[in-house]
Amino acid sequence: MLIQIKAIINKYLLKAFRDKLFYALVIAAFIYIYFVSVLKFSNIENTYQFLIDFSISGMFNIGVILALILGVNEVRNEIQTKSIYLSLAKPVDRFTFLLGKLLGILIILLSYVSIIGIELIFLVGKTNPEMITNLIGAILLVFIKLAIISSFIQMLSLFLSPVLNVALTLLISIAGHMSMNYINFILTESYKGRGIFFIKLIKFILPGFEFFSITEALLRFKHISFGYYLEVIIYGILYILFILMISNLIFREKNL
């Protein structure tokens, strides 16, 4: 099984690294973070807060675009061009195929996050070296968030058109970032119907991206325990595994 996964990853990486769009997005993100650190968009004296806030959110947003470009058409194209038969005839079972594709996407996202992360660590390290441990944690959590989004994109690409896939992924990303406090706040203020339970249920089912967002702690120089990172990372991995299993259920029933 491992050899088969490795072969699928290699095949995918060969194709993906040939695409110039990956390099274009990495360079764009690199320049964006450099500009955020150099330019002053407001009268804020301390540029550290500005840099952290803008660069982490920018890194995530560009990462989502990259994940969408990489994942939205991947399995779909293979089915349409019938090249999937070549892989499945090896023989590779469908779960291995999906897992290999997802791992390929994750390797590309990891290289993107590493390049931008090293730049950010270098920029922050010059002024606030005591926050580097937390910053590495924040970058790692951004990668896990992107991994969850990629698994969602892969799952949705099995039965939705690319446009709908992009729309739903963005919606999931926004709803996932809403904190439970914010939802409680809105509900207390404006809505008293019976739908509250369903709204909370949907929020519970969607990935809790608010747990991955530690930007505010970085801004307030608050150190986070190692245990918290571990819990969130385990949660992220379990969530990815869960989505992968749903994808497998959909894919094994699909007529190719």
């Binding site: 439970m180 519970f204 809790g208 949660y235 379990l238 869960f242 299993m245």
Partner: peptide, 28 residues
Amino acid sequence: VEWVNKPYLNDIYRANLHLKGLVISLLI
């Protein structure tokens, strides 16, 4: 309220993460 209820500061909201983790692990 948003700041003081951050899951890495507040045990109640951290328990929410644990509950989600538990449900997902059971589903898997």
